[in-house]
Design a protein around this nucleic acid. Sequence first.
DNA 1: GGTAAATTGGATTTCAATATCCAATTTGAG
DNA 2: CTCAAATTGGATATTGAAATCCAATTTACC
Lengths: 155, 155
Amino acid sequence: MFSQTVEYALRAVVSLADQAPQPQTTKQIARITRVPLAYLSKVLQGLVRHGIVASQRGVGGGVRLNRSPEDLTLLEVVDAVEPIQRIRHCPLGLAAHGVRLCPLHKRLDDALASIEEAFRCTTLADLLAEPTESVPLCEFPTLRQTGRAVRGTSR
Amino acid sequence: MFSQTVEYALRAVVSLADQAPQPQTTKQIARITRVPLAYLSKVLQGLVRHGIVASQRGVGGGVRLNRSPEDLTLLEVVDAVEPIQRIRHCPLGLAAHGVRLCPLHKRLDDALASIEEAFRCTTLADLLAEPTESVPLCEFPTLRQTGRAVRGTSR
DNA sequence: GGTAAATTGGATTTCAATATCCAATTTGAG
DNA sequence: CTCAAATTGGATATTGAAATCCAATTTACC
């Protein structure tokens, strides 16, 4: 339902938010988030273009959040890589459709709207604040204690 | 966000529900719903296999709803052609993830759940009951009055 | 200044969803 | 029985998302 690209972008910014305001290299993010390195770099390029993250070339460079995690919402990230296509007029392209959607497409669009809304209401900080109590989480929210060698031999 | 296949399947069943319990030929449905005929026939085949609709070959045959519109929900139709993939465990496939989702994927899955729920709560009859007051609708809910030649020269 | 670390951008490949085409089969009606 | 209407199923084509590869560029550090 959500595209791979969106999924990857979200993983990346969560990882970055967890380390904010410190930068991470694309390679590090790829390893942590389990995203194919080459593809992740493309996704990150898109996020750079949209001002979600900022990149720094060269030795010691990398990518960092360009916004504070309290301020950056999931919706902004999603919109940057692949905006949710709301249904604005009848997809049948009927002449007599006017602006109003038929009941079917109204429901479909309502569903899309509710997703947008949920994403609009969730910041990266929200995600990072939550996990502290629940134990078995995906890696990145618990990153802080996996002090496993930023410059380790890990591949 | 919703695949073409899902969109097409929903259009088809709405058209069928509007005429229920009468059958329509695939060609008629294709014309009304503006779905490519050859592809629609594939989609309908899937719906037949799942018992959503029933088909009758030969002259005078066609496709009809196999369920009453009051009883058939959008979710059942969607599940028949392309079930919503809920997120059941951490997509990173981490060893230590347990059953619990990380906050990110929990939110994503919640969004999917809310869509499922909305679809589960909407029957085809609900869709057909609604339009009567609002004027500019997509064609099919208003079909009844477009008595335009079931056997017309229309194409 | 040279070198290695890092992102950038373009070209290309892979793959599944979408769509099309056609032959086979079923079936009602004359 | 024959014919035309209709679905069925298999094979194939098309398209865009996902992924990969590689050369070019930037930049910190010795």
